[in-house]
């Protein structure tokens, strides 16, 4: 997993609530057996017509907007547990998703992919969405070690919460496998002391 420290970028607004992982990457594109290449089908049915032509109204097809942060409505990533959703966002160049809350499984998958799920209040989210739509060049700065999101144009910085262990993992590019494999003796000891075998 790539290390995540700070990010200086702009945001792409997606002001819908309850964006489910079927929208992020529809099931019919989950047939690949590797992690790469899902970005081209990110938000497939919102981004393309059935004949493959672009839907001009969709934000990812709007040349006004670019950047490595997706700013989305609350309950982002609900539904299916497919980690392909986090891979698709990452593959398409996103490194952070800002929302006012995330579905649990998506949050975990994002953290395991090196994509930061950054939770802000409903109020901050609404302000950000409006400000980016007004000025797509609005600069955003994520500082993971400091756990802050700054908007220099506003002269404001907000703090965000993140689990301290997952923060260390992201900053250093570690994942849980390294940690868990090192617990082998404790795991074997646990197995031996269990009263039941099923």
């Amino acid at each position: 997993m790539e290390k995540f420290q700070t990010l200086h970028t702009t945001g792409v607004p997606l002001p819908f609530e309850n964006v489910d992982t079927d929208q992020i990457i529809p099931a019919r594109f989950l047939k690949a057996t590797t992690r790469e290449g899902f970005g081209e089908n990110l938000f497939r049915d919102w981004r393309y017509h059935a004949d493959g032509s672009l839907k001009a109204a969709f934000v990812l097809n709007n040349p006004r907007y670019s950047g490595e942060i997706l700013v989305a409505g609350k309950n982002f990533g609900c539904g299916s547990s497919r980690e392909h959703a986090a891979w698709a966002l990452y593959d398409a160049g996103f490194r952070t998703v800002i929302s006012s809350y995330f579905a649990d499984i998506f949050r975990g998958n994002a953290l395991n992919t090196g994509l930061l799920p950054l939770q802000v209040t409903d109020k901050v989210l609404a302000r950000l969405l409006a400000a980016i739509e007004e000025n797509p060049q609005l600069g955003l700065v994520v500082d993971l070690p400091a756990q802050t999101l700054s908007v220099p144009a506003w002269g404001e910085t907000v703090s965000f919460a993140i689990d301290p262990y997952k923060k260390e993992c992201l900053i250093n590019g570690y994942d849980d496998i390294d940690f868990l494999v090192n617990q082998k003796s404790a795991i074997e000891a646990y197995e031996k002391q269990r009263a039941w075998t099923w």
Binding site: A86, I105, D176
Partner: peptide
Amino acid sequence: FGIGTSQVAQVMASQCLLLT
């Protein structure tokens, strides 16, 4: 409960997950 593919690999490697 449902898990992502990174966690599938973790369970394969250790039969455990690190969870809150």
